[in-house]
Nucleic acid binder design. Structure first.
Lengths: 158, 158
DNA sequence: TTGATTGCAAACCGTTTGCATTAGT
DNA sequence: ACTAATGCAAACGGTTTGCAATCAA
């Protein structure tokens, strides 16, 4: 890497976190963190890479993956699986969402208020000692529209 | 395919379903259906293929995939994503299960009684018109053991 | 006979890996 | 100087595809 990568304004918490844990501060990491910090909501590794690439085509995809892994280890980001292909990353600062994905039309409903799930999660915890996280996998099903149009209860598709 | 593939005892409902819908009854399809019918619980395409292969090595993986797709279209099987790699197929006759997967130790808890989720699903339906199916994706989280050992609420891993 | 179904091989997508080189500390 | 981090290229697992050959109807 010979090109210069300017450091974003918000890297300070990252920098200290990295240093504390003995990791090195590289331009690539700064860039990727900056991108994650300016992104809203969920973003796939490929999207991160595309944004990186626009600025610095020399940065490699695998570095994006490795950096996302690192940031997840450090607790700065987390990923979720929304049913389709790639995982989606988001800053852990941001509140988690529930994702309802219709397996007929593909519509995704995002639910910010996690209270709907509170009793269910409490029951899982009480009965099985399991601390569930419903934000990690999308919830499959039929959206209102498709349920009205096609009210079968047997079908299950992606 | 020159080898003979005997037809299982339970193919009759499939045969009629196929014929009704204008599909052809091939030995490959019979074999795969027989395997699915003698299998208990969830089974990955690769597992199906391995069992097929043991009996008839000439049958191709892609035929397994295509047949699973077809059977799903016909409503005879459904698939679920349990967090790790491959999808798992099961007969739709069999009751659905909830799968709780610990993202720290990998333990999977299977819950046959879907009542735990009933109120939650009812709430989703009432508030968003969404008919959710919690059996399609595993629920991520921490199992009892890991939650006691490592009670952080921030971490999220596969 | 003829179109659905198969086998094959190759491609696909998202991700991971081994290794030599580079560059933070 | 030392070793973590990178770029590269190749592999991975799971799945899908285009096409010519086959075979159930």
């Amino acid at each position: 890497m010979t090109h210069e990568i300017g450091q974003g304004p918000e890297s300070s918490s990252l920098i200290s976190t990295l240093r504390e844990r003995g990791y090195r501060l590289t331009p690539q990491r700064q860039l990727i963190v900056d991108i994650l910090e300016s992104a809203t909501g969920h973003i796939a590794p490929e999207d991160v890479y595309q944004q990186v690439y626009r600025q610095f085509p020399c940065v490699n995809r695998s570095t994006v993956y490795r950096t996302l892994d690192l940031l997840e280890e450090l607790g700065l980001v987390a990923h979720a699986h929304l049913g389709d292909g790639a995982a989606r990353y988001h800053r852990t600062e941001e509140a988690g969402h529930l994702h309802l994905v219709c397996h007929e039309c593909g519509t995704m409903i995002q639910i910010d208020d996690l209270d709907v799930a509170a009793d269910f999660l409490a029951a899982l915890r009480a009965r099985h000692g399991f601390v569930g996280d419903l934000t990690h996998h999308a919830i499959a099903g039929q959206c209102r529209h498709c349920a009205e149009k096609n009210p079968d209860s047997n079908r299950q598709e992606e």
